[in-house]
Design a protein around this nucleic acid. Structure first.
Lengths: 239, 239
DNA sequence: CGAGGTCTTGAAGACGATCAACAAACGTGG
DNA sequence: CCACGTTTGTTGATCGTCTTCAAGACCTCG
């Protein structure tokens, strides 16, 4: 159950046996969220935090006229609302894009971990900083990259993040979301995303068919995305 | 010197006398950064963090073909690279948009504060979470708001943040940056930003002349921006 | 006074949105 | 297992927003 989370953290720094054990002993309430459901809802002040065990989720904000903007994707092993520990209320919802399994841990236990294992606390904090770094990359992509560059960047990001938790096979990974989800993440229309995907497919960089993304030329994909993986902090180092 | 930072933190939670003192006793190196200069540079792994004492700064990423995207504005009292405490290297630069006064505090002292005053540590951590929340609002604005809504949102954000550190006068505040800076923040062309500002001025919502922003109708400005201040967490509450 | 930066406006064109229609895939119940 | 409705993906045509290029006004500062 905690495999993905632990793998996620171990990409950032070495964990001691006690730290790993502390995570595995976390009392959690397991929830199954059907696709389309809310993992946490905007405006709430939950007393617990959610970790995705399985499935794909996204931070989502709905605005007037029914427009939707996703601000992040989340996958197995992601602590999606650790920040609710300190923020007064959720400024956005976290929605399940596919059926999800989610573990809920009450804030009290997280504070205990932070107190008993300061280093582990720092690594958890780090994951929220990486979330912010990912936000910044999205802003850059939305503001100043071509639509192809923006799509390419997201596929690179997901490739590395999924690889970190062992959810890739070679240069392929399962991405069971819709083009509409992707368009809401990129701030573009579905139609335009569809055409951009077609272009990437035509030039042989990547395909996304039957929910499977396959990267045919990672180097060139990175290049048109101007992708530099450093911001993901996926190299273990003392924190 | 620490006034703005303390005011900034006290908007989030009550500080004890010891906590306030711990900040005021922080050994800092004061630096003057001229407009256009780097406060911290992309790729660096600084051994200290920077707090803005005076002036306006921004997180900046330059991409090929010389395009620039700003991902956040920072003002007096902002801890601009607290995250370098845990991240391996800066994924972006922080540039001075005006002449800035910056205080540098070595990471060691920050870790000491965090160890000796866990509550203060949490409030500092909180500020990085608010940064992330601001990033998310920018993503929403860039992706799904009209250019007028996006501009309006930024002016609302800056109004509340500057007000928190006492840098507003009524419904006015000094914003000594260029339209080009603003356009790089919004991911639009200068020309378009200029026209959008004109429209906002024409309908009497706000003006920005001689570096002074004046909001003439805050309620309506908030409305077209769909601005909800909650995400800034500017209400003190126990953290 | 000249040089460079900033602001402003015009004109032309590209990129992406919207509207619309259809195809393909999927799930469900008969 | 097929018929059906719904969701998702694909493509065309048209329209609007925003970009780009260009030029002039204004300002500050050497």
């Amino acid at each position: 159950m905690w495999d993905a989370l632990i793998r996620n953290l171990e990409c950032r720094d070495i964990l001691s046996d006690e730290e790993r054990l502390a995570i595995q002993r976390l009392p959690a309430r397991l929830r199954a969220i059907p696709a389309g459901g809310d993992i946490t809802s905007e405006g709430e002040s939950p007393g617990e935090s959610s970790i995705i065990i399985e499935g794909f989720a996204a931070r989502s904000k709905i605005l007037a006229q029914g427009k939707r903007q996703l601000t992040a994707f989340h996958i197995a092993g992601d602590f999606v609302d650790l920040h609710s520990l300190l923020l007064r209320s959720m400024d956005h919802s976290v929605v399940a894009l596919t059926d999800c399994a989610v573990a809920n841990v009450s804030h009290g236990f997280i504070r205990q971990i932070d107190a008993a294992h300061p280093h582990l606390g720092r690594v958890l904090w780090l994951t929220t900083l990486v979330d912010a770094a990912i936000h910044r990359q999205w802003i850059v992509a939305m503001g100043r990259r071509s639509s192809a560059g923006q799509v390419a960047h997201i596929f690179c990001e997901l490739f590395l993040r999924l690889k970190a938790v062992n959810l890739t096979a070679g240069f392929s990974y399962r991405l069971p979301i819709t083009q509409e989800d992707l368009s809401d993440a990129m701030g573009l229309s579905v139609v335009h995303v569809n055409r951009t995907l077609r272009r990437l497919r035509m030039v042989g960089l990547m395909t996304w068919r039957d929910q499977i993304v396959t990267i045919h030329d990672l180097e060139q994909l990175k290049q048109i995305a101007e992708f530099d993986p450093e911001y993901l902090n996926l190299t273990p180092s003392p924190r």
